[in-house]
């Protein structure tokens, strides 16, 4: 079976710079694979290992995707091929633009039995792109998938909702977004890292895809800023454990919370 797994490259939030006016800058941030998407990659890899077929990774974004380190990074985690769609206009793409671009790429990639997504992107965490792509492709589409098995050309999946776990039987092809506990992704091995630089990478521009639509964002971003931290008292309590306990109890009674 042929599987496409969609992953996003995001700025490492550890490199986020908060400017004095409260706005944030990610210009200098390292680009990393969104952590949740690694679980989708692992899920795809396990299915291909069990059932044969090919795993293809797909991402859309700016030319930051073309950086050789990040290409090697994703390929060292198991996919056989990598597909990248880049355009400067995708820098601040909303879920709708991202989904439409992914759909155009998936159509161009040819036959595929399953499209996998992470639970949500590590930066924006809308948890939407997978569902939108599935709907636009007209495929059986589900989120919150915590287990996937394939037999006789059908999928059996576990879906983990708030109060219940459902087991569904779904026909292929399908689009699924996985949960954060579906698996524990393995770390790339030396051999996979060495193999990664030899795997095929296909790079497309938006012109290479036939995308219909106006290309305009559906959501405007008005501001991005650091959260205001509430003013806290920050009273230090020092001393022996016993003294600390007494002092704390004193404060808490005064606050009226004991």
């Amino acid at each position: 079976m042929n599987i496409i797994v969609c992953y996003k490259l995001i700025p490492d939030s550890e490199d986020m710079v908060i400017k004095p006016d409260g706005s944030i800058s990610l210009d200098q941030a390292e680009q990393v694979i969104s952590e949740y998407d690694l679980l989708a990659v692992e899920a795809g890899l396990q299915l291909v290992e069990k059932n044969g077929g090919k795993l293809m990774a797909l991402s859309v974004g700016t030319d930051k995707l073309l950086n050789s380190k990040s290409k090697k990074d994703i390929l060292s985690r198991g996919p056989d091929e990598l597909y990248l769609v880049t355009d400067a206009s995708l820098a601040n793409a909303d879920t709708s633009q991202t989904a439409k671009t992914l759909v155009a790429a998936i159509k161009k990639m040819g036959d595929c039995d399953l499209v996998l997504f992470g639970e949500g992107s590590g930066d924006l965490y809308f948890q939407q792109v997978g569902l939108q792509v599935g709907e636009l492709l007209g495929l059986p589409t589900f989120n919150a998938i915590s287990k996937i098995d394939v037999a006789d050309g059908k999928l059996t999946v576990e879906r983990s909702l708030e109060d219940e776990i459902d087991v569904y039987s779904i026909s292929l092809p399908a689009a699924l977004a996985v949960t954060t506990d579906i698996n524990v992704p393995r770390l790339p091995s030396m051999k996979e890292i060495l193999k990664a630089s030899k795997k095929p990478v296909v790079e497309w521009s938006l012109q290479d895809l036939t995308i219909t639509g106006d290309g305009k964002p559906r959501v405007d971003v008005l501001a991005v800023r650091a959260p205001k931290s509430a003013d806290r008292k920050r009273i230090k309590i020092e001393g022996s454990p016993e003294d600390v306990a007494q002092t704390l109890i004193g404060y808490l009674s005064k606050e009226g919370v004991l």
């Binding site: 939030s13 944030i24 590590g122 924006l124 559906r218 971003v221 008005l222 991005v224 959260p227």
Partner: peptide
Amino acid sequence: LIFGGGAIRIEKAN
């Protein structure tokens, strides 16, 4: 909230 609460985005759908 974006970046797991590390930042806030103000958004408006159109």
